[in-house]
């Protein structure tokens, strides 16, 4: 394991009854980066980060945070990871300052609550009860609570959902500052714009699987160079491996009698040549060039809620 891999997830699988929340997810998060987990609702993003935080026990696969198993090393892990969760609230009548001071008392070497309130622009509402804070203020308090224990890694789950555009931009700036201060960040989001703006590397998750994992530039390049063709055949294809074994072919799927192949820019020539050599000249052949935005949709596999442009 390279020394700067802070979080390592291998072949994670988690089901709830008959529902497969996470099918097969592998990823590594490096020290000092903002790592994005991007995907549509229900893709398995939250289950993945909850497993990293040790809130869920995987059905299969392993999770290691700085070499530790989050399920068995609760004391160390909870001190190393700061978590901002979806659908987690504070008691209505607790004041912002009280909440931070209380959480500070849980950790071995916490940050100074007053300083953190200042950094997050909450000093003016420090004596305000949680229920009376605005959406943005609640979210900032929630981030403050994730940072109060002086964590090496902060998990931020859908932190700008429900915020107005200005509050969202302010929050983004904040996340950058936190990273610049040395905290590695795992950012869960279904906003493409957010991932583009903030993340050093992005894992795109769909239906419980990682469909792409790269830097933003890498994802864009991969999408640009990806070709996609669809065709029908005059007779049955004896074996899919005839095509999938070609180096230019990345995926081959079939919808009724229609084949859909994706791969490098050699794809068209490679497929047509191979098929023609077997007397299976494709009919009704289309090539599709994806735009950059479509590429994200294509990588994520289906309709992508929340895409804003």
């Amino acid at each position: 394991m390279p020394e700067n891999d802070l979080v390592v997830v291998q072949n994670l699988r988690k089901t709830y009854g008959a529902t497969v929340a996470v099918d097969d997810v592998s990823l590594t998060v490096r020290e000092g980066e903002i790592f994005g987990i991007l995907g549509p609702n229900g893709a398995g993003k939250t289950t993945t980060v909850e497993s990293i935080a040790g809130l869920r026990s995987p059905d299969a696969g392993t999770v290691r945070v700085i070499g530790l198993d989050p399920r068995t090393r609760r004391t160390e892990i909870t001190s190393l990871i700061g978590v901002q969760l979806q659908a987690s609230e504070l008691p209505e009548k607790i004041r912002a300052r009280e909440a931070l001071e209380l959480y500070a008392s849980f950790y071995p070497s916490p940050r100074d609550p007053a300083e953190l309130l200042e950094q997050l622009g909450l000093t003016e509402v420090r004596e305000t009860q949680f229920a009376k804070l605005s959406g943005g203020q609640k979210q900032r308090l929630s981030i403050a609570l994730a940072l109060i224990g002086n964590p090496r890694v902060a998990i931020l789950d859908e932190l700008t959902t429900g915020l107005d555009p200005q509050a969202r931009r302010d929050t983004w700036e904040l996340v950058r500052q936190i990273r610049d201060a040395g905290v590695t960040i795992i950012l869960v989001t279904h906003f493409m714009e957010e991932a583009e703006y903030l993340c050093d590397r992005i894992a795109i998750i769909d239906k419980g699987r990682v469909v792409a994992l790269d830097t933003l530039a890498g994802l864009v390049d991969a999408a640009r160079s990806e070709q996609r063709i669809t065709f029908r055949l005059p007779a049955e294809l004896p074996d899919n491996a005839i095509l999938t074994s070609l180096p230019a072919v990345r995926t081959l799927t079939r919808e009724q009698d229609r084949f859909i192949a994706t791969g490098t820019d050699e794809l068209l020539v490679a497929v047509v040549t191979e098929l023609a050599g077997r007397g299976l000249a494709p009919i009704d052949l289309h090539t599709e060039h994806t735009t950059l935005d479509d590429a994200f949709l294509a990588l994520a596999g289906r309709n992508f809620e929340g895409v804003e442009r």
């Binding site: 040790g54 809130l55 909870t78 990871i81 969760l85 987690s88 008691p91 849980f106 071995p108 224990g149």
Partner: peptide, 10 residues
């Protein structure tokens, strides 16, 4: 989720 939030702390 107050209890859940608490369980992510030491």
């Amino acid at each position: 989720g107050v209890l859940r939030r608490l369980s992510t702390t030491p």
